[in-house]
Simulated scan of single mutants.
Amino acid sequence: MAPPPPGVYSGSSTLALVARVSAFSFGLVYGNMKLKFLRANAKSHKKAEAKGHH
């Protein structure tokens, strides 16, 4: 990654660090939820398909 520009967003301030960490964890949680949702969706779709073939 490119180094952050000098000035307000130097990355050394605690606020910037906290903001970055919380954004990162939000991304992780959101990604996990999306994955679970998509997996559950795919599962129910396969079940419905299997029922239709019999």
Rank of each mutant, 00 (worst) to 15 (best):
F26S: 05
G52L: 09
L38T: 11
H54I: 09
E49F: 09
S44N: 01
P6R: 14
A19W: 03
F37P: 00
P4E: 02
S25V: 14
G27L: 03
H45Y: 07
H54F: 12
K34F: 10
L17E: 07
E49W: 08
A16E: 15
A48G: 00
K34M: 14
N41G: 15
V21R: 08
S22W: 02
F37T: 08
L28H: 00
K47R: 13
P4D: 00
K36I: 15
L35Y: 09
A23R: 05
N32I: 11
P3I: 03
L35V: 08
V8E: 09
S25R: 06
P5D: 05
A48F: 04
M1P: 09
K47H: 01
N41A: 06
A23G: 04
A23I: 03
L17C: 07
K34T: 14
G27Y: 06
G11M: 04
A50K: 11
H53R: 14
S22D: 00
K34C: 07
R20M: 03
A48R: 02
K51Y: 06
M33K: 07
Y30K: 09
Y30D: 02
H45L: 11
A42E: 12
V8P: 09
G31R: 03
G52E: 13
A42D: 08
K36A: 15
K46P: 00
K34V: 08
S13E: 10
V8K: 04
L15A: 15
P6W: 05
P5R: 11
V18K: 08
L17I: 15
M33D: 06
K46R: 12
F24L: 10
L15F: 15
V18M: 14
A19D: 05
A42K: 11
S13K: 13
A48D: 04
L15M: 12
K43I: 13
E49D: 13
F26L: 13
V18S: 07
Y30R: 10
V8W: 04
Y30F: 15
P4I: 01
A16P: 01
S22P: 00
A19Q: 12
M33S: 05
P5N: 03
L38D: 14
F24A: 11
L35D: 08
S22T: 11
R39K: 15
R20F: 02
M1R: 13
S13V: 00
V29F: 08
A48L: 02
F37K: 07
G31Y: 01
N32R: 05
F24K: 00
Y9F: 09
M33G: 01
H53A: 11
A19H: 05
G11H: 02
S12D: 09
Y30W: 08
K51G: 01
K36H: 07
